[in-house]
Computed example of a mutant assay.
Amino acid sequence: MLDKGVIEESTSDWCSPIMLVRQIQSSGRRSASRGRVTNWKLSEQEFRPHPLQWINRMKDTNAQITVGTWPFNPLSSSMEGAGGVPVRSRPSEPASDLRLHSSSTSTLAFDHQLPASPRGLLLLAEIVCGLLVWILVGGTDYFHEAALVWVMLVSVLYWVLTVCLFLIYLSQTHQRVPAVHWKTVSLCFNSSATVLYLVAAAVDAASVGKAIGGRHNYNCWAASAFFAFLTTLCYAGSAFLSFGAWRAQEEEL
Rank of each mutant, 00 (worst) to 15 (best):
L132A: 13
W221G: 01
E251S: 13
G28M: 14
T162M: 11
E250S: 12
L196H: 00
P51A: 06
R34E: 12
V208K: 01
R48A: 09
T105F: 01
F110Y: 06
S186G: 07
G28A: 10
D97C: 00
N62G: 05
N56Y: 07
S76R: 13
L161P: 03
L241F: 08
P91V: 09
V133F: 01
R30Q: 13
L121I: 11
P17S: 08
S89R: 13
K41I: 11
D60M: 06
E93A: 02
H216R: 14
S12Y: 12
L122C: 12
S43A: 15
E44G: 00
E80A: 04
T194C: 10
A193Y: 01
A225S: 13
G81W: 05
G83V: 01
R176G: 06
A205K: 04
L131Q: 04
G237W: 04
I212R: 08
S192W: 01
I65D: 00
I168K: 05
E80I: 03
V128S: 10
F72L: 09
S103A: 10
P74N: 05
L20G: 04
A225M: 11
L165E: 10
R176D: 05
V180Q: 14
S106K: 15
L148M: 15
L100F: 02
D111C: 03
L20H: 08
L132R: 02
Y218I: 07
A201R: 00
L187S: 03
S207P: 02
L170P: 01
Q64A: 06
G5C: 09
A239I: 02
K183V: 00
K183F: 02
L131N: 07
Y169L: 11
S92D: 05
I55C: 09
A205L: 14
G139K: 13
A63Y: 07
D60N: 11
G213P: 11
A125K: 09
P17Q: 04
R30A: 14
R88W: 09
A95M: 04
E9R: 14
F72V: 14
A236S: 12
V128P: 01
L131C: 11
E44T: 08
Y142S: 02
